[in-house]
Computed example of a mutant assay.
Amino acid sequence: MWTEMAAVFRNSKFSVNVNLALAYGTIAATMLVGLANISGVDGASAMYVFGDSYVDTGNFRDLSAFPPYGSIWPGYPAGRFNEGRNLADCIAELFDLPYPTPYLRLENNSEALRGVNFARSGAGVTYAYGLTALVSQVDEIEALVEKHVLTKAHLRKSVALVNIGVNDYHVRNRRGAFQEHDKEQELHTTITTIVDGIALSLVRLYGLGVRNIVVSNLALMACAPFVTEVTTFTSCSRNATLLTQTSLHNSLLQQRVKTLNRNLGGLHIILVDQTKAFEVLFHHGSEHGFENTMTPCCIGKAVPHGLVCGHNDTAGHPMYTLCEDPSKHVLFDTIHPSEAAWQTAVDLFAHVDGFTVGGPTLRAWMSKHGV
């Protein structure tokens, strides 16, 4: 059934999105009618994370050899693409939960009960860079349920975090797949495929017992440093395709989340507005203590665009430049936010109205649903 539904998503057209959303929501609700409706729990038991490098905390093993990643916390490279904690860590702290153990570093079943991070740096909804896609990450948690390491009862009392999508667009933009003259329908079809892939995974998580899910919309791609590099990190792009990708993706994702919340009993998804949060940080970062809002702290020299800053040459000399204080920068490297930026973004989600999409603050949502 999941394969058939995925095929429908891949072949769908933007003009029938609403009917499709209703259809898969109804199908899933029918399939899962035997599952109990959960209205809330007294605090989440654990957190389970899915996505890309914004939330990966150690599944990308090669990073362990690259300082200055992890230089501020925990003091050494530990699998995060910044100097300290990332979005997954900050959300775990907000929920007063242990940091989820990276899936590839699980040592025993008890660790899985304290939370697991399935995210992979470079991952997408599609197979973007050929790495573990979202559907495969959900396969991994499903395998833990099938092995009785995790139970549906435990997952009903837990919270999931899903942050993915940027790599799907980034790889296409780098290959020149979408330029300003591209046909609108082609762009819409691709966006539909990506968003429906996220929706399918949310339905599958529901089927495994998950009831409380935090989902992020897209980062602000027009202001990403691999884009602003051409202006020496001084201004965001006005490329119509980048702007359209972000706005249409976010709009369709909002529709999908609304449909799933309405049709799947007991499901509580909150959509946090990552686009808006980073728009504030890039354009009004000084109000939050940032002195450099677009210039990355660490800029690499070893790969195109300096995407990874932690390389040394054969003599051991750093192939990157590093700022003095990462906490004054919104961005640590040319893709990933600093720990201070993530902490500020999560504070906005949690406490300031308007930084979730069509819902209460993240803190109010937690209180309402007992997470």
Rank of each mutant, 00 (worst) to 15 (best):
333 D>I: 12
370 G>Y: 04
12 S>Q: 13
362 L>W: 02
42 D>C: 13
45 S>R: 12
302 A>V: 08
64 S>D: 11
354 G>S: 05
363 R>F: 07
77 P>Y: 03
260 L>P: 00
90 C>F: 01
152 K>R: 14
303 V>Q: 03
175 R>Q: 11
250 N>Q: 05
144 L>D: 02
73 W>D: 10
161 L>Y: 02
349 F>K: 05
137 Q>C: 10
309 C>H: 04
153 A>K: 13
108 N>P: 07
296 P>V: 00
138 V>D: 02
273 D>A: 15
14 F>G: 12
267 L>G: 14
167 N>R: 05
169 Y>D: 06
275 T>S: 10
28 A>K: 02
216 S>R: 06
263 N>D: 04
3 T>W: 06
348 L>Y: 04
181 H>D: 12
326 P>H: 00
319 M>W: 00
193 T>W: 05
75 G>C: 06
182 D>W: 03
301 K>M: 13
313 D>M: 13
192 T>D: 04
281 L>R: 03
334 T>D: 02
132 T>V: 15
256 R>N: 11
191 I>R: 08
318 P>Y: 03
221 M>H: 02
364 A>F: 02
180 E>Q: 11
247 S>K: 09
173 N>K: 12
231 T>N: 08
316 G>V: 04
152 K>F: 07
139 D>Y: 10
92 A>M: 06
197 G>M: 03
131 L>E: 05
134 L>V: 12
282 F>A: 08
157 K>F: 03
197 G>V: 08
